[in-house]
Design a protein around this nucleic acid. Sequence first.
DNA 1: CGCCAGGTTGATTTCGCTCAAGCAATGTGG
DNA 2: CCACATTGCTTGAGCGAAATCAACCTGGCG
Lengths: 224, 224
Amino acid sequence: MHMIDSEEWCALNDVDVTATEEAAICSNYETGDVIFYEGDDVKGVYFVKAGLVGVRKADLEGNSTLLKLAEPGDTLGYRPLAADQPHRASAEAVNPSIICFIDKATVRQMIGENPALGLNFLKRAAKELGDAEEKFHESVTLSTRARFAHLLIVMQDRFGHATEDGSLQLTLPLSRSDMAAMLGVRPESVSRVIHELEGTGITHFAEREVTIRDPNSLMDVFIK
Amino acid sequence: MHMIDSEEWCALNDVDVTATEEAAICSNYETGDVIFYEGDDVKGVYFVKAGLVGVRKADLEGNSTLLKLAEPGDTLGYRPLAADQPHRASAEAVNPSIICFIDKATVRQMIGENPALGLNFLKRAAKELGDAEEKFHESVTLSTRARFAHLLIVMQDRFGHATEDGSLQLTLPLSRSDMAAMLGVRPESVSRVIHELEGTGITHFAEREVTIRDPNSLMDVFIK
DNA sequence: CGCCAGGTTGATTTCGCTCAAGCAATGTGG
DNA sequence: CCACATTGCTTGAGCGAAATCAACCTGGCG
């Protein structure tokens, strides 16, 4: 069982995986610990071994939006490395995490020797680009309510589990404020949407425990 | 002088450029002609030889947002090809354009034989991803006024020219509605913002001819 | 126990949308 | 050449969704 194993890195043969693992430096991060800051020069990439990491962008007034969540198997920092840019967002542990740092010389060497690795990162970037464009489109097209419904569906997909009866269950990995930051709205608005969804009976919220009683209706809320 | 020449395709040697050019099919598109539709399967990529192309995304009510503009040298459709997805946006000539279609078998063969080509597309995707994430952040963070100011600055960069006095000049490649679609707002809002900027004397609009009298103030509008 | 962070709720404001009208430039048919 | 549609843009009035501001509630924790 390899330390570094993912959709992208699986392109490496045993020798190169081992070489990469030897070059990797793994660290523990507590909740809230920062992995890198917006504006920093890129020193290498960060392979998320365990935990959950949030990628944020802050504006001048201290507002921040949460661009995405990185789970075990995800590689952070490959984007600015590939673009030859400084970090354009910061990363911070949402849950206690184990993260392996791989310096950029090693990354470049591996990509140079294994074209498939570069293509895997191309595929990853291409998918993320599609998602990012969709996200922009949704942010200017859909209401807060619809976007929250979508977020719930995505979260259920990634972090949820089904139950014996038809309903879907989910433990939210994020606080209300962080969900607001994902949508680019105020926490108060999230509270109000949750209140509204409770009223319709489509969902039930208890702290971070969510039950989606009527997934189809939730889909309808998303579409409208 | 090669037909296909760009930041990405320059990775090819003479033999491969020639092979690619022989496989390419060039066509003329009039303003408004569609190059591909959202949802279509990807047949290959489209190299913009001349003109200007808009990449759009439509929602259910017929609203559409303009995600980006492609200029000569840009390659369209590489994203869904790399991601192995159908087109997630449509493309349409904004100005009369000449566009060369290169089927995906050829693209894949070239990338297979020239790892540098794949890396060039990785770099391109990585840059676009950074821009797309920034765009999302701006859309939820900044006012219409600020976003329009930013759009003006970017447009001036790409399509403008400086004048003898300190002011900047620019012929807009887009209608008001299309600028609205870039920002994800209504055309009326764009009109009102233009009116407001005129009032402050920062800019002057005559049809599509724009003079930016006070670039610094425009930057200030963007930041705030 | 009191404090504080995270969350909810209510009152008010504001920004951008909707709907509607008007206007100038361009095109079209009689 | 004029009457009239059409198109792109502007302007105005009213509305509505989300932000803002403020109060308050709850549970953890020194």
